[in-house]
């Protein structure tokens, strides 16, 4: 039997912005569905504010979900969609209209109440989904890749708005994403998922500065993971380490190696223009290293280059956990 998630144990603090980050199929969405109640765990338990909800159906859990495809009811107008959670709980019609209007105002969609979901853009649908979940004032809001279908500009705006909403309302957010930028910029803490397990659970800064495993180093901040013979020579044992591309400097031919730096020579395979920096792909020592040296003009592709990084920038990594 394959396990979508295995041996995952985590606790989220009240009012926290907690992210579950990982590639597709890593088990992060399954975890979210376990919290929402759409799936029941084969073993293990889910607690919500101290209450064991493992056998409680989703409609009796005090959590609300923003779905990846928004899941707006196509046969109801926007206002009815937003008021739906109040309607099934027996809130009176005038009050639920009032509260639904407030929720729409909160996501800046005043005046859209009479429209059908089919008449909205992706970004507007996403806001309606958010308002529909928040109108119930849940203890926990679950967000399943809510920005996945939006274009970059809108995504960045929504990130700022989501974070602002979360701060203002004080609701616990559990946020699932495969976008490490999104997770790092909004979260208080991030759990990095890989193949159904948590590789590392830490605040964004720590994840970025001190990745614990080769997977986290590659997935978060796309560090170079250096292992094998070259790593052994530098660290004295077989332990792998990570170096981030922007911490690598370029050395001119004949220039001396700065203090406490490690030198690496290789052929420049390719240079990618990234705006503020250029990304060099340097091949040597049986591997390719990505470097973003600041202020250095890139030599021609194919030429031999010298790059170096400070010893302090090397982060020792634990071996990949055995599966």
């Amino acid at each position: 039997m394959t396990r979508a998630v295995d041996d995952v144990s985590l606790s989220v603090a009240t009012g926290e912005f907690f992210s579950m980050l990982g590639p597709s199929g890593s088990g992060k969405t399954t975890c979210l569905r376990l919290i929402a109640g759409f799936e029941a765990p084969d073993s293990g338990e889910v607690f919500l504010e101290g209450r064991n909800v493992s056998s409680v159906p989703p409609n009796e859990r005090d959590v609300n979900t923003v779905f990846q495809d928004y899941a707006l009811f196509p046969h109801m107008d926007v206002l009815t969609n937003v008021a739906y959670g109040l309607r099934v709980r027996g809130v009176s019609a005038p009050e639920r209209t009032q509260r639904a209007r407030e929720a729409l105002a909160m996501v800046k969609l005043e005046g859209f109440g009479e429209r059908r979901p089919g008449q909205l853009s992706g970004g507007q649908k996403q806001r309606v989904a958010l308002a529909r979940a928040l109108v119930n004032r849940p203890r926990v809001l679950l967000l399943d890749e809510p920005l996945g279908a939006l274009d970059l500009k809108l995504r960045e705006e929504m990130q700022i708005e989501l974070k602002g909403l979360q701060r203002r309302l004080g609701i616990t957010f559990v946020y699932v994403t495969h976008d490490q930028g999104e997770a790092l910029s909004m979260s208080d803490r991030v759990a990095v998922f890989n193949q159904g397990r948590i590789e590392q659970l830490a605040p964004p800064r720590e994840l970025y500065d001190r990745p614990g495993t080769p997977f986290v180093a590659r997935f978060v901040g796309s560090s170079n993971v250096i292992e094998g013979e070259f790593a052994s020579r530098l660290t004295g044992n077989a332990q792998a380490f990570a170096v981030r591309a922007e911490q690598i400097v370029a050395l001119a031919a004949g220039a001396p190696l700065p203090d406490a730096h490690v030198e690496y020579r290789g052929a420049l395979l390719d240079v990618q223009f990234h705006g503020a920096t250029n990304r060099w792909q340097v091949q040597g020592e049986g591997m390719v290293i990505a470097a973003e040296p600041r202020g250095a003009a890139a030599p021609e592709a194919g030429s031999q280059v010298r790059i170096a990084w400070p010893r302090a920038a090397m982060v020792l990594l634990a071996a990949e956990p055995r599966r």
Binding site: A36, G37, F38, P57, P58, N59, E60, V63, N64, T65, F67, Q68, D69, A71, L72, F73, Y84, G85, V88, R89, R132, A133, N136
Partner: peptide, 20 residues
């Protein structure tokens, strides 16, 4: 996801059936 959304918003299975 629509059926799950209804349950998520607190609808009982009977309400989900009738209203969604």
């Amino acid at each position: 996801s629509l059926i799950q959304a209804a349950a998520d918003l607190g609808a009982t299975p009977a309400q989900t059936l009738r209203q969604v």
